[in-house]
């Protein structure tokens, strides 16, 4: 193997290593949003604190989380590159297929995380009391 090939592989593996991390970001935001919303609600309700402030906080947190997930989803969608090659499966062992498959997985996880964050926020939106 030539020196140049090795360098190319090293570069690609590095980019895929980042991408591998990236597919976890959607669910990670969902998890943080979930834990923060429930913890804040439990604490503030137990201490008889301000429900309106809590709802506003959850609202802002939800907005930030949804925008971040939407951005991640958009990046992943471009990485998947479905509309250009109409290739759903990306099942060849090539660098390009690996790259697009990770985009595919990250996109689907972003969709699930977006729905999850929205549903978690609904009770705060619809129920204005700690009871």
């Amino acid at each position: 193997m030539t020196k140049i090939n090795e360098n190319e592989d090293a570069h690609e593996f590095r980019s895929e290593a980042v991408s591998l991390w990236r597919i976890t970001f959607g669910p990670l935001i969902w998890a943080v949003h979930f834990a923060a919303s429930y913890a804040a609600t439990a604490l503030i309700c137990a201490k008889g604190g301000a429900v309106e402030g809590l709802r506003l906080g959850i609202g802002i947190g939800t907005g930030v989380a949804l925008v971040a997930i939407a951005w991640l989803g958009w990046q992943a969608w471009r990485q998947w590159d479905l509309l250009c090659d109409r290739d759903w499966e990306n099942d060849q062992g090539t660098g390009e297929d690996r790259h697009q498959f990770l985009g595919h997985a990250a996109f689907l996880l972003a969709v699930v995380s977006f729905i999850g964050v929205s549903y978690v926020a609904l009770p705060a939106l619809l129920i204005g009391t700690c009871r």
Binding site: I115, S118, Y119, L126, T129, R131
Partner: peptide, 26 residues
Amino acid sequence: GVLFPVVLLGGLLVYSLPLMQAPREA
């Protein structure tokens, strides 16, 4: 497989969540 269940479950959540308040009313 995706849009329909998300909309349906979302609608059911929006319908049912406010119902949880009445039994907790003062």
